[in-house]
Nucleic acid binder design. Structure first.
Lengths: 195, 195
DNA sequence: TACGTTATGGACGATCCATTCCAGAACTGA
DNA sequence: TCAGTTCTGGAATGGATCGTCCATAACGTA
């Protein structure tokens, strides 16, 4: 039910979606819609909240607890998944989080707060995973995990942005690869010393 | 004149801007507006084109030709400038390129094409500069300049995205620093070999 | 089955907004 | 100064959209 509404908002944005569209999409009458949610804004908030929760859940699914030895793999899996998602979005609908934030955050405090909270959650997940990879020695422990997490979050959200702007899927995948490849590995014996 | 219109679209987006607003902002009557531009969509295209051109010009200003020895500095200057711009955007208006793309690219081929072309231009500028830095030995010449350029573009656009989503200015600056710091430097004698 | 309560959904009213229109201003050239 | 032409800008138009309302349907209870 909220899923149908989400499809609509995702497809045509907030301003571009008519309540009639949602009524038709969900099969509900407008009286029911207004009775259940109040107004268009409140309905959007519900949908937006759900989307943000899902975004964090996807991250949690890939970055959930596990052995430190596989932390880097989990990070890689997550970043690649996000690139694949964007690459697979042939309809160029982008991410409702980005779309909603771009359209409304400036004038709607609720949307702004929700998107900020989502970023904070993602940042925390990434930071934890980076810490694990550092403990295991896959990433340079001299690096600030907070900063690396912010960089990865920026890359993930950036992939979404440049994907919507029209960069081709192959390039998007390349960005994910490259971002992971340039992460500072432990300055170990036998890596760069052999020159 | 187009500048006033830009301010309006920037402030309130395409759908959120009324032609009355633009008339008031520019001081022109609606008859004149329609006589000069045709309709709201055409006016937006003009403004959007101008913005995209400006985005590329800013990049050209920082990444213009110069000695290879300073190529890395120019890259750094550009990435930091973009982070500062986003950090300084206290009104959280974001970038009209991102906002317009998010709102319209999906349904307006002209906007989609313009945003894609802008990405391509930025990519070319970055690639050239990375090539210069590689020639001078500041960046590892084994790395694919095309891929590094795509990564930097993603970071730059990503900074804009996470900035609008609410990440604080200090974190944004950190992302710019970190992105530049992790670029693969030439695996030189005396860098990581001293361990 | 019969009655009270709640939910439903399509029609309606009020509002908003892009676009058109036209009366008058500004300007050109003599 | 004056006639012809172009330009201006606010009022009018027409279509679309949000939110309300009420007749009806569905449901629970006895």
């Amino acid at each position: 039910m909220l899923e149908r509404a989400r499809e609509q908002f995702w497809e045509t944005g907030f301003a571009g979606t008519r309540m009639d569209d949602i009524a038709r999409a969900t099969g509900l009458g407008k009286g029911s819609l207004y009775g259940a949610f109040g107004d268009k804004g409140a309905l959007f908030h519900r949908v937006f909240d759900g989307w943000c929760a899902a975004v964090v859940e996807v991250a949690e699914g890939r970055l959930a607890d596990g052995p430190d030895a596989e932390a880097l793999d989990r990070l890689s899996s997550y970043v690649h998944l996000m690139a694949e998602n964007t690459a697979a979005d042939t309809a160029r609908r982008g991410c409702l989080l980005a779309k909603g934030t771009a359209e409304l955050a400036q004038h709607d405090p609720a949307v702004a707060a929700r998107s900020a909270a989502t970023m904070t959650s993602l940042l925390a997940l990434l930071r934890k995973e980076i810490g694990a990879a550092q403990r295991h020695g896959d990433l340079d422990s001299a690096a600030d995990p907070e900063r690396l997490a912010a960089l990865l979050l920026t890359v993930v959200r950036g992939i979404e942005a440049v994907g919507k702007a029209g960069l081709d899927p192959e390039t998007l995948r390349g960005v994910a690869d490259t971002a992971l490849a340039v992460l500072p590995t432990t300055p170990s014996r036998g890596d760069g010393a052999t020159t």
